[in-house]
């Protein structure tokens, strides 16, 4: 008995310890998932609160109605949609925008814009990159190519989904590149803060590929 009791005690303790560690791991795994597993509509606080509504929103609703491809300019010919360089923001905002806006102050700081003696100066040496938080992320083993999808959808508007109300593209044969984004990204132009609207899981990809005769070979995306 003298021997067995401590062993049971030790066993019990270690079992509790192991369970505790496993539980901690579980909690950690749950909370540590950077992309929300449930309810992917979660939004992120970005370093600069960039209003898509203001820039890309329809003119009728107070937006500027800018084309998506004005900033995301490589979407038509490369795999990535491209986050614009601060340079591009500065090209407008060195002149446009309120002096007192908190968000624009941050942008000017990033772009190295300051005024001296009533003159606006852009100094690239004082500029620094902006680290945006990624909202739409695919796993490492997926090779998604924007250009191929944009090309297909612009020529086959029937496949476009989530068409925003303000776009009138029904019955057209060819549409603009910026009119097809909603299929995966939703109506970004009317989002205060960008969030993911589609699950962007493999099931969704494959369904769409099946509907439209896209390749369903694994190696089309995984290599």
């Amino acid at each position: 008995m003298k021997v067995i009791v401590p062993i049971i005690g030790l066993g019990g303790l270690s079992t509790i310890a192991i369970l505790a560690i496993l539980f901690a791991g579980l909690i950690n795994a749950w909370l540590g998932q950077p992309l929300p597993v449930l309810g992917f509509e979660q939004t992120f606080d970005q370093p600069i609160n960039f209003p898509h509504t203001k820039h890309a929103g329809p003119v009728t609703e107070g937006g500027l109605g800018m084309d998506c491809t004005y900033c995301h300019r490589t979407v038509e010919n490369s795999s990535s949609a491209h986050v614009p360089a601060v340079e591009l923001c500065a090209s407008c905002h060195r002149a446009i925008g309120s002096e007192n806006s908190e968000e624009l102050k941050k942008l000017r700081e990033s772009a190295g814009i300051y005024s001296e003696n009533n003159q606006v100066i852009v100094d690239p040496k004082k500029a620094s990159p902006i680290n945006w938080k990624r909202v739409h992320r695919l796993p490492d083993h997926v090779r998604f190519v924007h250009s191929a999808h944009i090309n297909y959808l612009t020529n086959n508007p029937g496949a476009i989904k989530n068409i925003p109300e303000h776009l009138n593209i029904y019955g057209k044969e060819n549409v603009l590149s910026s009119e097809v984004c909603s299929t995966c990204h939703g109506d970004v132009a009317n989002m205060e803060q960008v969030h993911q609207v589609e699950p962007l899981k493999m099931g969704q990809c494959v369904n769409c590929h099946r509907e439209n005769g896209g390749p369903t070979d694994c190696a089309a995306c995984h290599h």
Partner: peptide, 25 residues
């Protein structure tokens, strides 16, 4: 389950969730 076993070592590195917009393109 995987997370529990590996103590969440397989969560996505923080770095990969950042898209950097450079100063000059």
């Amino acid at each position: 389950a995987a997370g529990a076993v590996l103590f969440a070592a397989c969560s996505i590195p923080e770095k990969e969730l950042i898209v950097q917009s450079p100063v000059d393109m």
